[in-house]
Design a protein around this nucleic acid. Structure first.
Lengths: 199, 199
DNA sequence: ACTAAGTGGAGGAAATTCCTCCAGTACTTG
DNA sequence: CAAGTACTGGAGGAATTTCCTCCACTTAGT
């Protein structure tokens, strides 16, 4: 594969993540090509179907989250509090909410490698959160999935996101959510474990 | 106006709220008519434009929220904690997230009566939250708008919402959010007040 | 400098959504 | 309970959006 072609391919994946996050999984593919500054044909050549593109987005994003969780685990020894904060900030930045439709719409026929990445990411994130629970930084009565889903929901696309006046809103809401995750909060009703989810 | 026609009109508004909440403000009007179990012509006769319908949804929903806040204020004397819980539960049930696009897309040319209802609702909700802050049940470093927006974001439509396995997720996330709203949580960064918002 | 890999975007096909029209249905009133 | 009129449903053509192929042209790599 030619070097410039590979670069364009990666640009497309990034653009797709942004557009899926902003306008949902049904966003016109033309918009993604435009966002990537690339012709529509280039998109179709790289990703014959919408699902191919969605899976590529899932693959890279999940890998990034895994990477972030692994780093946070490393840093847990020294400064667990800061490590957790940085991890959440980075995940917020990734706009994971964009992944939900891609992963859920076709959980059954998910390509094996995406499925694997998902499992690995899930394992690493779970380890991180259990570690933090052990350290008394996160409440015990919550499962990792719920935390990730909460972040995903709060960072999903939103009309107001494009307004300058509310640019500050999402971080604030995340902060409240994180405050609610601390162990000194009021107890939660017991969870029912979902099978199907982003992570 | 004939009695059955009025009833259909109300059914349409409820259906529109549900469909807007589930599929966004751009949902096809046919879907709303279908959800209401009514012909498309009936929808167009009652609401010539999409905005007319959206405004009707906003009008009734905002009025309902105001009603709920007023009731919660009444009950604050006896059992403020339970009053707050019931208020939030009811607002969650209303799927306020559906309103955001309707109110924001055209804040300028919002019909006067909707604008008025919005102001009144805003005032009552603000009073309720200030009261609860005074009672030490809610943290002081947050503005009413942020609370409502948090609930709206967490109750927005979501692919997973339709899965039985995750039916339990939203209440849990709301519970975490509420826990984060309690005054004993960690302090939040200072807010920047948004001008434009649901409430 | 040559060649094969790669590109953009025009534009017809396909799908979706809009919205009018009118023959027919069913409240209401007397 | 009959008459009249307010109201209904949904077919279907127009308008819009989205898809996706095709090919003349460009450019990276050797």
């Amino acid at each position: 594969m030619r070097a410039d072609a590979l670069e364009r391919r990666n640009t497309l994946i990034k653009a797709a993540r942004a557009v899926f996050a902003d306008r949902g999984h049904d966003a016109p593919l033309d918009a993604i090509a435009a966002q990537a500054g690339v012709g529509i044909a280039t998109l179709y050549r790289n990703f014959p179907s919408r699902d191919d593109l969605a899976h590529a987005v899932a693959r890279t994003t999940l890998a990034e989250v895994r990477e972030l969780a692994a780093r946070a685990l490393d840093e847990c020894g020294d400064e667990p509090e800061a490590a957790w904060r940085r991890f959440v900030e980075a995940v917020v930045e990734l706009r994971m909410g964009a992944l939900v439709p891609a992963l859920v719409n076709s959980l059954d026929e998910l390509p094996p490698d995406v499925r694997d990445t998902r499992e690995q990411t899930k394992a690493t994130v779970t380890e991180l959160i259990h570690r933090l629970q052990g350290l008394g930084l996160l409440r015990e009565d919550i499962v990792p999935l719920e935390i990730i889903m909460g972040i995903a929901m709060l960072t999903r696309p939103h009309v107001l996101m494009f307004e300058d006046t509310t640019a500050n809103l999402v971080p604030r809401l995340i902060a409240v959510f994180l405050a609610g995750l601390r162990p000194d909060g009021v107890p939660l009703p017991p969870p029912i474990l979902p099978e199907t989810a982003v992570l």
